[in-house]
Design a binder for these strands. Sequence first.
RNA 1: UGUCCUGUGGUGUAAUUGGCAACAUGUCUGAUUCUGGUUCAGAAGAGUUUAGGUUCGAUUCCUAACAGGACAACCA
Length: 559
Amino acid sequence: MAAENINRPEESKETKNFIEEIIDSHLESGRYNRVHTRFPPEPNGYLHIGHAKSICLNFGLAKKYNGLCNLRFDDTNPTKEEVEYVDSIKEDVNWLGFQWDAEYFASDYFQQLYDWAEKLILEGKAYVCECSQETISTNRTTPTRPGIACEHRDRTPETNIELFRRMKNGEFPDGTMVLRAKIDLNSPNMHMRDPIMYRILHAHHHRTGNQWNIYPMYDYAHGESDSIEGITHSVCTLEFEVHRPLYEWFIQNIGIHAPQQIEFARLNLSYTIMSKRKLLQLVNEKHVSSWDDPRMPTISGMRRRGFPADAIRDFADRVGVAKRENVIEYGLLEFCVRESLNKKAERRMAVLNPIKLIVTNYPENQVDMVTGVNNPEDENAGTREIPFSRELWIESDDFMEEPIKGYHRLFPGNEVRLRYAYFVKCTGCKKDENGNVVEVYGEYDPASRGGNSPDGRKVKSTIHWVSAKHAAELETRLYDRLFTIPAPDDAEEGKTFLDYLNPDSLKTITAMCEPALAEARPGQFFQFERIGYFVPDKDSPEGQPRFNRTVTLKDGWAK
RNA sequence: UGUCCUGUGGUGUAAUUGGCAACAUGUCUGAUUCUGGUUCAGAAGAGUUUAGGUUCGAUUCCUAACAGGACAACCA
């Protein structure tokens, strides 16, 4: 094998993570002359941001070393897995921006796995055990004490192979017997105390149908699948560390290509949960609408929320790869999202919490068009025309009858700029019987058309607005974090993560939007000026976009 | 309890493999700005879990302790 296609990353200021250092040493020592990774999801749920880290890592490693990366579905448990999940997983990996070199299923290897199991049996390295689940467990005892051998352990290979074949043929009911590797009942590592390789399951498998009555366990299937595919570096999360001796035992005793398993710390994000079980619970108990509810930390949820794929990749990059447990601040994800969106989102004006501003010296039925810049960060984004008239919607936060110190928006006597339009000076307001402001009044300066005064006069603030008679009233969903505390998993006594659901994680309002927003289409990104980033939801009817708030703008004033 | 893994600013990740701790984010200032956004400039913030040891010198090597985590499924 020529090794000239190995691509060692050029010396750059970028430091290497510990996995890359291991790979470098393997390449140097000649243990491997290539890099081949895989992303091995179990199709029993939707992918989440934690998987995104693993996807970026595995595909990233392959790319960096000019190697390959497979997508392999770890579908060894037919009772939990469904095609729906297979489809969503493929879509999510693609959307994240990765193409796998080959697509496999662990179930593709069932026959090979079976043959190897027979080989181990014949060599006296595996046996059929008829103990109950409880007996197996109690016979394993505890780590400090030796395990107890059951009467099945010393059966002859002939008996074992016959029993195993009958297991395969479906002659026994579920749970009556299992195939166990004969390793070491006294190992301090409980995984080595004769682990189960096969269990009987008369279940319909999403790919092999009813062909099999026995299914391999993770520990027996995973490493062998890696080996079959020629994987060199099998990257997984920390909890599999104790499984590594077992992974290596099977490979060695079958006598096949040996990949190196390397474990890293999974991603944890503050204010969110990552467990598939809990995520499923949120969906099943209707705390969210679906797996792709924009509040979900799933890849599909984030996509619907408006997080760009490049932001997620950047995030995965920034959190790094190490072995120590970590909790990433949610703010870092938001930073990555804003940084990406700032460059690509077109600006629009929309008023979320409207109050009317009447420009008293502007002619009653006049309308003029002012020009708005679509994206100050991108010259190619062009401009658009926005209608201006006497009655405008402005944000109620942008007016205070009695301003607090530091406030320089609209208050009686103060002049501000209406973005892209005119200077307007506040002359007062009208209140209802309860003292609530219902209308704000102002006078504009015709000479300031376009947003600048010829006399060089300055204003301290610019506010956004929407012409009342031209406003498009569009449904807008204001999303916030799903949980109220940083670590919803660490519930205090007597509580569960559900007790920390944020009741205000979704507020649906009608926003007063500039007309151009009515033409927004799913897939586009917008910044509502001074407010945040928004995307049209996929469930929007034609010509009537419903907006999802992706993230707010950073608020340096923060009342 | 046993085995294994991990301890570096608030958070995360580094430190040329022994040379007085860097980057990002966050926070706080100030400047710029037709978004209280962006951008720019600056500041504060860890002496590397602790105690010993080796060394001229330790985040890095050794020992012990302490703390946190994983495992003890016919789940993956």
